[in-house]
Design a protein around this nucleic acid. Structure first.
Length: 398
RNA sequence: GCGUCGGUGGUAGAGUGGUCAAUUACACUUGGCUGUAAACCAAGCGCCCUUGCGGCUACGUAGGUUCGAAUCCUACCCGGCGCACCA
């Protein structure tokens, strides 16, 4: 632990503590314990666990990442736990049973990639990284039985996800009961004061609190971060395809942020940026379009810098407000007809799909003044011309 | 192990011998209206082409019955529930 210990001053600034426990936060359990610990001036040990499954970090994940950083910034001991063991077990939800166990090398590689993305938020010089395989792999069956004896089936079944699955006659695999055990053991081994996680992890984290108590370790509090909605208002999730990724290019990130529902602007500001409450209140008085521009600029700046954000805004205004051709049009080599060119490049998924788009009047050739609607499905791809398909797809023929 | 119910398109969930490329809802795509969006309205939503009341492939997997099967039969795989088991 060497370099992390000592000489770090722990801040007990009331306002900072308050912000820490409220902004982007879903729940703090138990709240009194959290407040007491944070005010004590003691250096707390806090951790957040991730699965090294090759995740593309999206804005939803950044709430926890940023929270971890906030703890570190206050002078606490922040630990990032990589689920190197859990990743080799398979999908805890049982949904994707065929998920292949990851090898050690894959875990390493995935984490490198994760770190590359997370670095945009975390300063790894002030964050410890631990792998839960270090203490989970050595456990034998007897150890596991002993651990399991700390829980009752009733406790496990209380989890509402299980309740729902029982009601719906959906399967619950036995190993799903072991998952909270593993997660809980992490916090017992690390003997932490606090665990962070998405609110979907609340049950697992509380299992850890229980286990830690049962094993006579520190009294841990749990802080769940909010699950943020994606562009369309549903939970941000890869399966809904409504995520904004840290790896998104500035223009994409900007475009996606502009597509966010108006009602989410304030939430995004509060959970995803450091903009002060007063500034947010001020921005929210703007017309929605402008408020959203502010949001987009703020977030793109965080991950790509001011210059890129400015350019992204300009590009967006040009293409969508002024209906000009975006600067980064995809250029395609013509292979004869427009259909073949565009299908071959994967811009349109199939010939049938292209035919439908033609029928719907979605395919247009851009001119300096007007757009010409293309009605002939066999129209050639004319060199030098730019075509627009629907609202968002632009291609230029070389 | 026995019994029983079930496995359908991105999801939920209809359909129980022909009229089923499969009702419907959500999601998605596109057009209209807008502020880019949302909401709303409309169309589309397996693939292929010589675009036709066209061909091909699809309702867990493999066979079978039939002029014809998502629908019936057989085997297998997977799941729920009940019974049994209580080491």
């Amino acid at each position: 632990m060497g370099i992390f210990s000592r000489k770090t001053e722990v801040s007990t600034d009331e306002q900072k503590i308050n912000e820490l426990l409220t902004r982007g936060v879903e729940n703090v359990i138990p709240r009194e314990l959290a407040e007491k610990k944070l005010r004590s001036g003691e250096r707390l040990r806090i951790y957040w666990g991730i699965d090294p499954t090759g995740t593309q970090i999206h804005l939803g994940h950044t709430i926890s990442l940023r929270k971890l950083k906030a703890f570190a910034d206050l002078g606490h001991e922040a630990i990032l736990v990589i689920g190197s063991f859990t990743a080799t077990i398979g999908d805890p939800t049982g949904r994707d049973a065929a998920r292949a166990p990851l090898t050690k090398e894959q875990v390493e590689e995935n984490f490198r990639d994760y770190k590359r993305q997370a670095q945009k938020i975390l300063d790894f010089r002030t964050i410890q990284v631990r792998k839960n395989g270090d203490w989970l792999f050595p456990l034998n069956f007897a150890d596991i039985v002993k651990l399991a004896s700390n829980f009752t089936v009733g406790q496990m079944l209380k989890r509402d996800m299980f309740q729902r699955r029982i009601e719906e006659d959906k399967p619950i695999s036995l190993h799903e009961f072991l998952y909270p055990l593993m997660v809980g053991y992490d916090s017992a081994v690390l003997d932490v004061d606090c665990e962070l996680g998405g609110s979907d992890q609340e049950f697992n984290m509380l299992a850890g609190r229980h286990l830690q108590q049962a094993l006579g370790k520190r009294d841990k509090f749990v802080l769940t971060t909010r699950l943020i909605e994606g562009i369309d208002g549903r939970k941000m999730s890869k399966s809904f395809n409504n995520c904004i990724y840290l790896d998104d290019a500035p223009n994409d990130m900007y475009g996606k942020l502009m597509a966010v529902k108006d009602e989410l602007i304030r939430t995004y500001f509060e959970c995803l940026t450091d903009t002060t409450q007063e500034a947010i209140d001020l921005v929210m008085k703007f017309p929605p379009l402008e408020a959203k521009h502010s949001l987009a600029v703020a977030i793109v700046t965080m991950y790509h810098g001011v210059a890129a954000a400015g350019k992204a805004k300009e590009n967006w205004v040009n293409t969508f407000s002024k209906k000009e051709v975006p600067e980064d049009v995809q250029e395609l080599q013509s292979v004869g007809s427009l259909r073949d060119t565009v299908v071959k490049a994967g811009v349109v998924s199939s010939n049938s799909e292209f035919a439908r788009l033609i029928l719907a009047g979605a395919v247009k050739q851009m001119g300096s003044q007007d757009e010409i609607k293309i009605v002939d499905g066999n129209a050639p791809a004319i060199s030098g011309k730019t075509y627009r398909i629907g609202k968002h797809r632009f291609i230029k023929i070389k």
